[in-house]
C-alpha cells in the first residue's frame, strides 16, 4: 500500500471509531442501488447494477449443448466474471485473476445453492439442454463487487428469455418464454475495519479492511457464505452479520424484482 492509501486508511478508521463514514452513511446502510434490466438486445437476459459508483453489467446467453453424463435430464449454469481494464487503474487485461475467479464462483454458488434457476426446466430433448452463460462485466470499481455482481446476475436471470428450438437447432431470433427463476437470493457483504464492521464497503473502505464476509440468503436460509482476506471474525460478529443479511433480504429482493423490464 502506498503512503496516500495508508493515510486514507487511517482516516477511515478514525472516522469509524466515531461511527462515521466518508459518504455519511450509517454503518449498516447500502449505498444507492439502481438496477436496469433488458438493456442488451442480443443477450437473452441482461442487467446493469449501480451500487454507489460501482457499476456492473451482466449478460445472460442461452446455448443448446450436449447434456452431461451424470445429469441427463437438466441443463447447465456457467458463471464468469471479468475485472475489465476500463473499470480501474489497477486492473490489467489477461487471464482471469484469482479475484475474478473467486467473485464468479461465489455468485455461482449462491445461485445454485438457492436453486434460483430450475436446471431441469432447461432440458430440450434426449441429449440436449440449454446451458446458461452468466457473464459478469465489471465496468466501474468502487468497492463491493460481490453484492453488485450478485444483484446483476439475479436481475439478469429474472429478465431472461428462452429461445425457440426446432429441427435440432436453436432459433435465437425467436424467444418463446421467460426463463424460470424459482428463488431470489440476496447478498450482503461486510468489511471489518479496525474493530468496526460496515456493510457495503466502497473502494476506500476496502483498502482499509482486514477481512470481508459475503452472506447470501433467501427468506428462510443462508445459501452461501465466503470470507475473504487475512483478518478474522469472531463467532458473535458472524452471528450479527447473518442477522443483518436476513434483515436486508426483503428490501434487496424488491430492488431485483422491481427492476424495470423490457
Amino acid at each position: 500500500m502506498n503512503t496516500i492509501n495508508l493515510a486514507k486508511a487511517d482516516y477511515i478508521k478514525e472516522m469509524l471509531n466515531r461511527n462515521m463514514r466518508e459518504d455519511s452513511r450509517a454503518l449498516m446502510d447500502f449505498r444507492d442501488i439502481s438496477i436496469d434490466t433488458g438493456i442488451l438486445k442480443n443477450a437473452e437476459g441482461s442487467a446493469q447494477v449501480d451500487l454507489g459508483n460501482t457499476r456492473v453489467l451482466c449478460g445472460v446467453k442461452l446455448q443448446p449443448e450436449e447434456t452431461m453424463k451424470d445429469t441427463p435430464d437438466q441443463g447447465n449454469l456457467v458463471v464468469s466474471a471479468e475485472l475489465l481494464p476500463l473499470a480501474s487503474k489497477d486492473y490489467e487485461s489477461g487471464p482471469p485473476s484469482p479475484d475474478a475467479i473467486e467473485l464468479a464462483r461465489v455468485v455461482d454458488r449462491g445461485i445454485r445453492a438457492g436453486q434460483c434457476v430450475d436446471l431441469k426446466d432447461l432440458f430440450i430433448e434426449d441429449g440436449k439442454a440449454w446451458t446458461i452463460f452468466v457473464d459478469i462485466y465489471i465496468l466501474n470499481f468502487d468497492g463491493n463487487l460481490f453484492d453488485a455482481s450478485y444483484m446483476a446476475a439475479m436481475a439478469a436471470l429474472s429478465s431472461a428469455w428462452v429461445p425457440k428450438y426446432e429441427n435440432d437447432a436453436a432459433v435465437m431470433e425467436e424467444r418463446i418464454r421467460k426463463l424460470k427463476v424459482n428463488n431470489i437470493v440476496t447478498p450482503t457483504t461486510f468489511a471489518k475495519i479496525g474493530q468496526k464492521i460496515v456493510l457495503d464497503p466502497d473502494a476506500n473502505e476496502e483498502a482499509a479492511m482486514a477481512a470481508r464476509l459475503t452472506i447470501a440468503v433467501d427468506k428462510d436460509f443462508i445459501r452461501a457464505m465466503q470470507k475473504g482476506l487475512s483478518g478474522g471474525f469472531t463467532q458473535k460478529e458472524i452471528q450479527d452479520m447473518i442477522d443483518m443479511a436476513f434483515e436486508k433480504h426483503a428490501m434487496l429482493k424488491d430492488y431485483i424484482s422491481a427492476a424495470p423490464k423490457e
Binding site: A113, L213, R223, M225, K227, G232, I238
Partner: peptide
C-alpha cells in the same frame, strides 16, 4: 477467530 468461512447449501441461523 474464523480465518476461513465458506458455505453453500441451506442453513438456518
Amino acid at each position: 477467530n474464523m480465518l476461513l468461512l465458506q458455505m453453500d447449501g441451506e442453513l438456518t441461523r
